[in-house]
Design a protein around this nucleic acid. Structure first.
Lengths: 220, 220
DNA sequence: GAATGCATTGGGCGTACGACCAAAACTATA
DNA sequence: TATAGTTTTGGTCGTACGCCCAATGCATTC
């Protein structure tokens, strides 16, 4: 089957995106150039500015696509673990196993920093992170509900009791927990990038303390 | 030693370091050049390579100096809070207040990523982070000892995975907690950099949970 | 007052960059 | 087959880069 003209164009475009993603991981966001991206993709430099307006556009598109892929599969996995007791350990194991050797992990870290200087990327990434937090918060809510908690857990999306006298609502707690959980995971990757020996320190217990504690939110 | 001449030289050198630190925060690690650093410092470009072997040397030295300053004062503050009950909230408040508007915070984030590609920086930063973790672990130990309710891993409650034979020591738990605490804080800064509205989500309770201070810590 | 040592200047080298473009090659349609 | 549209080529701008170095200040020491 002979690929049509526009099909080849799409594939060329995709190869540029893949090459850009690779180079971001290997050399850093700021070190990716049109010529290097084209070279990695096995294409001529002029092609970059045919398919993308600027180099920044190429980088933003490449990294966002990868991030969306990652968040999508993570949320999917989260939703698929119905049993909370099993799910907690399983998911936390997965989370704590994020490795510096994992390209998509490194790419995500690069994105995080680059987004502080690229407004469009910042906005889109903020939205993406919001989605992830929402999924995690839902997961926390369903987990705490299924475990027979004393704390009334809100249904995902449904209205939540406005507030308790001395503290936050369960939903608010779950949101904050999800935020800190995400931050901890991203930070953990970064620290392990710097000191690979840290991978030998197990943190599943501490992650569980952070996540599972929503079951005993009230005074003990 | 020649007083005047060498003194001016040292000041010039310092001005280059300061300029480099500023530019790293403003434009990113990879965007700092000899000419821009010299320009910011109000000096001639040639001076950069008089005082520093390469641009990378300048960046590494500038960022490491700032990081050492930061870690030093943080550890100092940690050690000065003897009372655990007061210390927990006080320190956690401080930690959760790290802001995207704080230059040294942004600089630290830039360092973290750059260190994945600059071996010397990576090594020194790993050592520095190790110091910080040690200080935090010590602080956790003294806090839990003073409060009477230690939080040894393997204790009841939380969802403990089947990994640990017999349970880890309290020290190991404190080390892991310190690691995750540091990672969470760095990650939190990054996430707030991307979505400033996250600063409105209080995470002090969750941080306290992570730190094992599940006692009646004051609500935020 | 000459010699010494460090700080600084200003210019120059080769290289790589982002961006751009006209023409060529190719495919799909008429 | 002719035509219209898209993809790819190969090259050229001007700019900025890291790094280098000979010459010049300038204060201290002999």
């Amino acid at each position: 089957m002979t690929p049509t003209s526009s099909e080849r164009g799409q594939e060329t475009r995709q190869r540029l995106l893949d090459a850009a993603a690779q180079l971001i991981v290997e050399d850093g966001w700021g070190a990716v150039t049109t010529r290097r991206a084209a070279d990695r993709a096995g294409l001529r430099p002029g092609l970059v500015h045919y398919h993308f307006r600027t180099v920044e556009d190429l980088l933003v598109e490449a990294s966002l696509a990868a991030a969306r892929r990652e968040v999508g599969s993570a949320a999917e996995l989260l939703a698929s673990t119905g049993d909370p007791e099993e799910g907690v350990t399983q998911v936390l194991e997965l989370m704590s196993s994020y490795s510096a050797a994992d390209p998509s992990t490194v790419l995500f870290s690069e994105m995080l920093l680059a987004s502080t200087r690229v407004e469009r990327l910042r906005g889109e990434l903020a939205e993406l992170l919001g989605e992830w937090r929402g999924a995690v918060a839902d997961w926390l809510a369903s987990a705490s509900a299924a475990s027979g908690s004393a704390v009334p857990a809100g249904e995902p999306g449904s209205a939540v009791p406005a507030g308790e006298p001395g503290g936050a609502s369960a939903r608010e707690d779950h949101e904050a927990t999800a935020l800190l959980l995400g931050a901890a995971l991203d930070g953990l990757v970064l620290h392990r990038l710097i000191d690979p020996s840290l991978a030998r320190i197990p943190v599943t217990d501490q992650l569980a303390r952070l996540a599972g504690a929503s079951r005993r939110t009230g005074r003990r």
